[in-house]
Each structure stands twice: as C-alpha cells, then as structure tokens.
Nucleic acid binder design. Structure first.
Lengths: 212, 212
DNA sequence: GCAATATTGTTATTATTTTCACATTTTGAT
DNA sequence: ATCAAAATGTGAAAATAATAACAATATTGC
C-alpha cells in the first residue's frame, strides 16, 4: 500500500467528518465538487485525495457516501471508536471533556480522566472514570487507551506524556505551551499551541498588508 | 518584497517564540542547527527560512538573537503587542483567558472579554474588561482589537465572528467545531479543531502501522 | 434513441517546498 | 601564521503537492 501524504490525510479526515454529518441528514451521494466546496478545495484535489483510497466511484455518477465511508474506515482506521483520555482536569481539561462529550460522535470515546490533585477528582461530576496521575500507565494499558489529551501545567507536560507512552498510547494531543517529545517510536504528537496560532494569524495579517 | 510561503511563516513564528525565551535566559547567539533542533527541522531549512527575511548573520558566526528578533519584527509584524479579545466566557473561554494571562509574554495583550450571558460577566473575576455580546463591534473598534478568540457555542460562532469582522479584527481563532467564514476580505481564520486533530492522530497512527 | 450535461478516473504539467552541495568567512587551537 | 572546524549564504537538484487537461461513463431531457 502506498503511503498517503500528510496533507491528504488531513483533508480526508475532514471529508470523513463531513460525510458523517451528511449521512445523518439522510444524504446518500456527494460529488467531488460539493466536497471541495465544504473544504475550500477544488474538485480536482478531492478526487486526487480519494484516489489514494483506491477506486471509490464510477464515472458519471456521484460518490456513494456509504462507499466512501467504508474506504476511509479501511484505509485510515476510522472504524471502531478510538479510546481517549484527558490528563489534567483543570479548567482547560474540564472544558475539553465537556466539548468532547457534548458532540455526539461515535469516532471518539473519552474513557478516563487523570489529575494529580486528588481533591479535584472528587469535585468533578462527570460520567467518565477518574484516576490519580500515578495510575496513568496502568490505566492506559488496562483500558487500551489509544489517544491522550494533555492539559496539565507546562512543567508537567513531558512527564504526563511519558507515562502515557509507557501505557501504550499511539497519539498525544498537547494543549500546553511546552514542547513534548514522544518517549517511544511510533507515538505521534500534535500540539494545540494557542499563542503559536495567534502569532501565525498576526503574521498572516501583517504580511498580507505589508505587501501592498 | 517577495511573499513568504505559509510553512515558512509557521516556522518563523515558532523561531520567534524560541529566541524570546533564550533571550530571557541571557543567551545572545544561536546557530541554525540549534534552532533546527528545537523545531525538529534541519539546519538547511532554518537557514532558508531566515533567508526570506534578508541577510541575518555573517558566515562563520552564529546568528545574533537581537538581529534575528529585529528582522522578525520588521518582516512578520511581531512588534508591539497585538490586542486580543475572547468571545464566549464559558469554561473554555475562561481557560483560554487564564492560559494567555499566565504566560508572561509581550506579544499578546488580552484586552477584552465578551459573553451573551450578563450574569456570567459578573461572576468572573479577572483583570481584563468584560462586555456583553451586543457590544462586540463597538468595543473591538474602540480598543483597536486585532485578534479574536471565539469560544462560544457552535451555533453562535458565525454570528460572533461576523461581529468581530464588523469591528475590524484582522484574525480569528475559532475554538468551536463549527466552520467559520470571514465576513470581510483580509480577515484570516484559523481553527483549533479538537476532534479533527484527534482524527488526524488516529489516522497517522493507523497508516503508520498498516504499512508494515 | 440520442445529444447534452455532469461526473469520475487518470495522466501530464506546473508550482511549491524540501533537501542537498558547496563556496565563503570567522573562530580558535597549535 | 596556519590549519581545522564550524557557521552562514546561495544556487541547484530532488521530492512533494497542487493544478490542469482530457478520456470514459452515466444520467437526464427531449
């Protein structure tokens, strides 16, 4: 199987999100140009992307959403819900938990939360199981958690990530300003860097006007 | 002036963050390979990136951080602090506020917060000024706010963004799952899409093992 | 039935981005 | 002084990604 380039993975992930919503609304077919509209891309790009999954439709007809969905599940692993945990249940961690539980999606299941402050664990009311931080490794392994959201203090971010790696997660989403390096090979890290994003926005706005 | 490609802007934004931290620690020089280490990039890439800013150093010597800083300020507009506001002060908005105020940085100044719930405005204790949502446009204009963080409910995201656009912001950072389209030309939008990021992580992990 | 239209599959082209290679220059040790 | 090591500037090459072009196929309306 040929490796799928990252930008393609990015777009196809979004395509999956879109067709799921459309399917809920009872829509059964969609064209590459329609998808392009949702993504802000051309129909060419979409077709090329889909082509990485193999043949998905027949010329002259739109794509069957069910077929697309099946291909995306097979090639990108969007099958059974991925088990996630949230490490750090401060304001941010709680907000993330709320957001993820609010969206009715079968793609992700938040199955555990961790915090180093025991008192904190007792004050939070939620449907998921909560554990003290020292039990991250064992719990991650036991519950077969694949993805971890890190929302602790920046100073504790690397340690939290290390414990998740030890437990066997496959991906880490880092919400702290600290840089996290995966302890094991095969663990992917992505960062949600608020001030970094702001800086990029500022630079985009500046360079777009400075050029005139 | 030649247009700077987006990936370069992204990396240079990060470089700015790094050299600021180093400068605080009293470090005055840095090499392209050291910077590359921080960014997970090669020295070649870094040099090429810096080259978009013009000549920054002299062969044989490392880069003077002060010079780099000056160039980044001139070309990417990282000069005076950018004024920001947060729209939506639920758990997420409050967490963002906390995070931005906690990091001692002169790059961004959060100068206003908005929420449609008046009671909410009275219960939050913070150093910044708070306003009801209907005053977004006027306040943004009056305080010359350039960047807006949108943390409202998804259903209200587009409307909140529209008001910010009317007030004259230059960039919007969208924390809701909803897709926001800028009302005016010249306004940049970036999204912090948690489930999207999770999906990408899941796909990366899946494709990396499926290939073996 | 047939032409017109819309749609996908596929190849080719172009543009962009990354990587490499090397000349030039400074620093520092011997 | 001289040589080696390390660092930047810069142009070329390679890899990657986006865009375009077009052939093949189905649908629709008449």
């Amino acid at each position: 199987m040929k490796k799928i380039p990252f930008p393609v993975i990015q777009r196809l992930s979004y395509v999956f999100e879109i067709i799921n919503k459309l399917e809920e609304n009872g829509i059964g077919k969609i064209s590459s140009s329609e998808l392009g509209g949702y993504l802000g891309q051309t129909a060419h790009t979409i077709r090329k992307d889909i082509h990485f999954l193999g043949i998905a439709g027949t010329p002259g007809t739109k794509y069957e959403i069910a077929d697309l969905r099946r291909l995306l599940i097979d090639h990108l692993g969007f099958g059974e819900p991925k088990r996630c945990c949230i490490v750090g249940l401060g304001r941010l961690g709680e907000a993330l938990l709320e957001q993820l539980l609010a969206i009715p999606q079968d793609a992700f299941a938040v199955v555990a939360g961790f915090d180093s402050n025991i008192n904190r664990l007792e004050t939070i009311r939620t449907s998921i199981e909560l554990f003290p931080a020292y039990r991250i490794e064992k719990t991650v392994r036991k519950l077969q958690i694949e993805l971890a959201l890190i929302a602790v203090l920046p100073q504790q971010a690397q340690e939290a990530a290390d414990r998740c790696c030890d437990g066997g997660v496959r991906g880490i989403l880092n919400f702290t300003p600290a840089v996290i390096k995966p302890k094991r090979k095969g663990v992917f890290v992505r960062a949600v860097d608020v001030s970094g994003e702001l800086r990029i926005l500022a630079a985009l706005a500046y360079t777009s006007t400075a050029n005139e």
